[in-house]
Nucleic acid binder design. Structure first.
Ligand code: DCP
Ligand code: MG
Ligand code: MG
Length: 1154
DNA sequence: ATCCTCCCCTAC
DNA sequence: TAAGGTAGGGGAGGAT
């Protein structure tokens, strides 16, 4: 779901940091300090940008805080600058921004940490804890009860901030702007509101004057949520409850169009490639000429529109829905009760023409539009406008801005025209989007260069060991080559390594002349294409980047724009790339970029120079490895058009429901839409996923009818069969949506996706995957023709394999040859491993540049293990300049899948994930079925399968004799296993739901039917992976529960009062739930702790299993517990024990009764 | 370890 | 007024 609330991201961050540095400076030094942080146990997560950990530590230590280098149950607060919502939730502890410490130091008093919460709309663990326990009048410390003054027990009222904050209306606006999705935290939904409803408890109630702008998450009080006037006709007609909403919405959605077009063009390209027998890989001889272009239209939507408005080419123009003139959102439908902000200003009327003036009739600007700009011309960009910005902001930047409407039909036509040109002239086309594609023109370059050389004479290729190539100068001149920069290292390593050759023999290296010619010819081709595209599109301009890899081509395009061509030579490539910001690398968005920034990584050079493992620690294994390579200008991907793996739809705009019926009615339409799309796309799905967005604050978001800041949820089912009607889809979707269980008013977005696709022909008959991408399917050499449908779920219980598999009739003979089974099971693995080890294999296979999988080599005879091995080795050597055995294991994740697969199968590298093992299992298990006489078998299979289906009898794993299972044909066995897995998953689902219900009941009973508590419960169980364990106060971790209870005892036992009854009830319900969930041992452990604390001993010597659990941290009450506490414990024990006896047939031993 | 689900992120 | 869709890579972390 798209999200464009980042308009002010950078500025906000910068402003925050300035203030923070100042605060820290003030806070350091001095020798006697008030111990304002006494009792605070900190864990600092991640990196700090405004100070060092050491500096911060020093400052807080002298003021009484404890800083640990690890997270423990004693931790009271986690300090972090950045963390995903889900991580925050999973920690189940207060996660607070460092400003809390800094500002507390600044003011020399402990401020309320809740004012410095790291933003997460849903921190159910924390909130549920508060909502339930606190509403019992139970004071409880954070974590293990070490809360002291800063603990949760002293949580202040969120609304109880310094009123001063609200007094200056300009602050709110100027600091955060209307665009900030976070600007409404004060209205945050959920149990925090329960807290907020309580009287403000603390005098230290939040940050005061100087740095009130730091926190983009907290909106000053004195501000009511903007509300939507549902009686406004315009609103009524445009929200999701309006008749015909979906059709109108999708028809008007640019992003929907982009997605549709991309899918279409992907199919178009792959079909074209298949029909013309084109593949992205070349005979090894072509490798040195490898030339990839990235073609991208300049400001595409705008260009299309400007074709009919040549008068406007030099004025700022944008494409958007709104003219920006009509009544601002705040003036119609949305009632903006912003403190101090005047009501909406009405523009006179939109200009009738296409082009609208940016000022209203009375000359007053009305820069409020939240309409998004799809595309803006370069004149507009010069004003600072960018694709995706809000129109309102753009109008501020360029008051003379002209807004033109979408013309989807024309855009579509231009896009098709573009692709016609590309398909006709390129060796291979990978569709990227309606205005963009990668093309491979290697063969053309080669042909033309060779022709030119034939005429003029001169050497084109240079042998690796050839004349001018041995000295350093030659290597330095390498830069004029179009080849990958790795070639250079290949050459060096060859020298170091002595005799071994890298297998790039037949291609050789391009001579200087060759290199120059390549560059010139490639540029000519590009210019030629641009002219053709301009003509074909009626004047739209394409820019083209050229390189020897997709990456370099892509990067070159940035330089080429606008209206140009840029060829990135490998020699300059590394330098060029390293100078770029990491944000310029494909795959790096604002999140990764800011993660990097936290570690001081700004440019690609920074990343390239950092040791790979460090990069991976920051970014993850695969992303880290990939980007580390990208940052060096290395990219081994090859072009392909990938086959569809899923289909679905989402709506996150205009979702405003009041009732379940409205939701249901919408879902009906929605499923209709999606089912229709699936039919049209010729797919059916077994695996259904529903997504939903839940708003995190009350009131309207900045974007008109937008979703605002939300929590995302998803639920999925795997069905035994594909859904084959809209109504079945609807039924499943509603189940899932209900499971997610979001109140209709809170719903802000819905999505529905199908996976595990079966491809179906026009008459609904399943057929083989249409080879849309070709490659993926081709990589399974074991004759998919014989793989039964059953293989949708692989034996290894992964269901990731392509779902269908009746024979693939449409696979050409040539394709069949390519699918020569070079890999078929574990034996082959070992064999090939041996072959690879043989020095004789080295260099026996010429290099294939740019990542052509060995499987595709047409010259490779079937089963030629040795050659395959050599091939893999040669290819790696060519690409990375090192021998396979020298490969740093941590770059493995960055290898393109095909190469990785090849290496894994060859046993040269460890499998990255399950893929290798799974495939091996498939292969070996499938050998029998792969025989040519599959027909009869297939019929049997079909019959058996049908029988199974008809019986609707899916035996459980335990019900099937393993012997019987083994005796079945492999595919039938797999089928059964699939069924069992589905069944198992469904059983789990039911258990989960049961538990969830229990929890909700328990929670709402305990919290006095507080909706918020139930809601928090829902979120907790509905959020993270539906915990398999029951929750106590939103907490599932056993130690955390013990800590919580211990803290409760610490607080309440000394008070000389009886234990709070509802708290007891909650504990009882939790323990019962534990027992029901099959964890009596945990219940036992809890009981034991409680009994010890109330003075009844801990029953050592009892038969219980649970041994040395951590007990309490502080033992406030050393003597015997009060009698009423002990009595309460006994009752509790009996209740729980009754349940234990019921479920296990034997109870705990009430040791204290003797 | 590996699987699997529920996210998150990115690109156009 | 406004039309913040979609598909795929990937990671975290619980279950097994
Ligand atoms: N946030 C965005 C980005 C793009 N698009 C649409 C409109 C663009 O015209 C088209 C192509 O996207 P590009 O990223 O290629 O952007 P442009 O073609 O507009 O400009 P450029 O010259 O930078 O390629 O996709 C959109 O609707 N919303
Ligand atoms: Mg473009
Ligand atoms: Mg583009």
């Amino acid at each position: 779901m798209a999200y464009s609330g980042w308009h002010e991201y950078g500025e906000l961050k910068r402003r925050k940091q300035d203030a923070q540095r100042a605060a820290l400076a003030r806070g350091a030094g001095g020798d006697s300090h008030r111990q304002i942080f006494a009792g605070v146990v900190l864990y600092v997560n991640g990196y700090l940008t405004m100070t060092t950990l050491e500096e911060l530590k020093r400052a807080v230590l002298v003021r009484g805080a404890v800083v640990r280098d690890h997270l423990s149950s004693a931790t009271t607060h986690i300090i972090a600058e950045q963390m995903t919502d889900s991580k925050v939730r999973s920690l189940r502890k207060p996660v607070v921004r460092p400003e809390w410490l800094l500002e507390s130091i600044n003011q020399d008093r402990l401020l309320d940490w809740t004012q410095f919460r790291l933003f997460t709309g849903a921190a159910p663990g924390q909130r549920s804890l508060l909502a339930s326990l606190r509403s019992h009048g139970v004071g409880v410390g954070a974590g293990a009860g070490a809360g002291a003054g800063a603990g949760l027990g002293e949580t202040a009222d969120v609304d109880g901030m310094d009123p001063e904050l609200g007094d200056d209306p300009s602050d709110a606006e100027s600091a955060f702007g209307d665009d900030d999705e976070h600007a409404h935290l004060a209205n945050t939904l959920g149990p925090e509101r329960t807290i907020a409803a309580a009287p403000a408890g603390s005098a230290a109630s939040g940050p005061q004057h100087p740095h009130k702008r730091w926190n983009p998450d907290i909106m000053p009080p004195g501000q009511k949520p903007r509300t939507l006037d549902l009686t406004d006709p315009f609103v009524r007609n445009n929200i999701a409850t309006a008749p015909g909403f979906l059709k109108r919405y999708f028809a008007a959605s640019r992003l929907h169009h982009l997605s549709i077009w991309k899918a279409e063009l992907g199919l178009l390209a792959s079909r074209h490639m298949r029909l013309h027998g084109k593949r992205p890989d070349h005979p090894p001889a072509a490798a040195p000429f490898r030339t990839i272009m990235h073609v991208d239209m300049d400001c595409f939507f705008a260009s299309v529109a400007l074709r009919s408005r040549p008068d406007l080419v030099n004025t700022p123009v944008v494409i958007a829905h709104s003219s920006g003139l009509a009544p601002a959102a705040s003036a119609a439908g949305v009632d903006a009760q912003m403190a101090g902000s005047s009501g909406g200003r009405y523009a006179a009327k939109p200009t009738p023409s296409n082009a609208a003036s940016a000022t209203t009739a009375d000359g007053q600007p009305a820069f409020k539009s939240t309409s998004e700009i799809a595309s803006c011309n370069y004149a507009a960009r010069a004003c600072g406008i960018a694709n995706g910005s809000f129109l309102g902001g753009a109008l501020k930047l360029a008051p003379n801005l002209v807004v033109l409407p979408y013309d989807f039909a024309s855009i579509d036509a231009c896009s098709k025209a573009l692709y016609r040109v590309l398909l006709e002239h390129a060796d291979f086309v990978q569709a990227v989007s309606c205005d963009e594609a990668y093309i491979d023109v290697t063969l053309q370059v080669k042909r033309r260069v060779e022709a030119a050389v034939a005429q003029s004479g001169g050497a084109l290729l240079v042998d690796d060991d050839g004349h001018a190539d041995t000295d350093d100068e030659a290597e330095d001149d390498f830069g004029d080559d179009l080849l990958l920069p790795v070639r250079r290292r290949a050459s060096k390593s060859r020298k170091r390594g002595g005799a071994s050759r890298d297998g790039v023999g037949s291609g050789g290296k391009l001579s200087q002349t060759g290199q120059a010619m390549c560059a010139q010819i490639a540029t000519e081709i590009a210019e030629d294409l641009r002219a053709k595209i301009r003509d074909a599109t009626g004047g739209c301009i394409a820019s083209i980047g050229i390189g020897c890899s997709m990456l370099l081509a892509r990067i070159a395009t940035k330089r080429a724009k606008p209206n140009g061509v840029f060829l990135l030579r490998p020699a300059s490539a590394r330098e060029h790339v390293e100078a770029l910001g990491i944000r310029d690398l494909p795959g790096v968005g604002h999140v990764l970029a800011s993660k990097c920034a936290e570690h001081g990584l700004k440019t690609c050079g920074d990343v390239a120079r950092m040791p790979l493992p460090d990069v991976q620690r920051i970014l993850g294994d695969k992303v880290g490895a990939t980007l580390h390579q990208f940052a060096q200008g290395i990219d081994a991907r090859s072009l392909e058009n990938k086959e569809r793996q899923s289909i679905g739809a989402e709506v996150t705009w205009g979702i405003r429901f009041q009732t379940q019926n409205q939701v249901a009615a919408f879902m009906d339409d929605f499923c209709q839409e999606i089912y229709g799309r699936a039919v049209r796309a010729g797919v059916r799905g077994k695996h259904i996923t529903v997504k939903a967005k839940k708003r995190l604050y009350e009131g309207e978001p900045p974007k008109f009818l937008g979703h605002g800041h939300c929590a995302d949820f998803s639920r999925s089912v795997r069905l035994a069969k594909c859904v084959d009607s809209k109504d079945k889809l609807l039924a499943e979707a509603m189940k899932l949506l209900n499971e997610i269980d979001i109140p209709p008013v809170d719903l802000r977005g819905v999505g529905l996706h199908l996976r595990q696709l079966e491809f179906v022909d026009g008459r609904g008959v399943p057929r083989a995957a249409p080879l849309a991408g070709g490659q993926r399917v081709l990589q399974f050499p074991t004759a998919p023709t014989s793989m039964p449908t059953l293989l949708a779920a692989a034996a290894s219980s992964s269901l990731e394999a392509p779902a269908p598999s009746t024979p693939m009739k449409r696979v050409s003979h040539a394709d069949r040859l390519l699918r020569t089974p070079t890999s078929s099971g574990g034996a082959g693995k070992r064999k090939r491993f041996g072959a690879l080890g043989s020095p004789a294999a080295l260099g026996s296979e010429p290099d294939v540049r740019g990542g052509a999988p060995g499987f595709f080599s047409p010259r490779k005879p079937r089963g030629a293990d040795l050659e395959a091995a050599a091939h893999a080795r040669a290819r790696i050597k060519a690409m990375f300049g090192v021998d396979v055995d020298e490969i740093d294991p941590s770059v493995v994740p960055a290898l393109p899948p095909d190469i990785r697969k090849e290496l894994e199968e060859a046993g040269l590298i460890g499998t990255l994930a399950a893929a290798g093992a799974k495939r091996a299992a498939d292969d070996s298990g499938d050998d029998g079925a792969a025989s040519p006489s599959a027909r009869r078998e297939k019929r049997q299979r079909g019959a058996l399968k049908r029988e199974l289906d008809d019986m609707h009898l899916l035996p459980t794993a335990s019900q099937i004799d393993p012997e019987v299972l083994r005796a079945l044909p492999p595919d039938i066995r797999r089928e059964l296993e699939t069924q069992m897995q589905i069944q198992r998953s469904n059983r789990d689902r039911e258990m989960r739901m049961q538990r969830q219900q229990q929890q909700q009941q328990a929670a709402s009973a305990a919290a006095g039917a507080s909706i918020d508590a139930a809601d928090a419960q829902k979120q907790e169980s509905g959020r993270k992976l539906r915990p398999q364990l029951p929750l106590f106060a939103g907490v599932c971790d056993h130690d955390a529960v013990l800590g919580l209870l211990s803290g409760w005892l610490d607080e309440d036992m000394p008070r000389e009062c009886a234990p709070n009854q509802s708290a007891l009830g909650e504990i009882r319900d939790y323990l019962v739930a534990l027992v029901d969930a099959g964890h009596p041992d945990r219940a036992w452990s809890v009981l034991r702790m409680l009994s010890r604390r109330v003075g009844l001993g801990d029953g050592d010597g009892a038969t219980s299993n649970s041994g040395g659990h951590r007990t309490s941290t502080t033992r406030a009450d050393k003597g015997k517990g009060k009698p009423d506490w002990a009595g309460s414990f006994c009752e509790l024990f009996d209740d729980v024990n009754a349940c234990v006896e019921r479920t296990t047939g034997a109870g705990f031993w009430p040791w204290w009764r003797k």
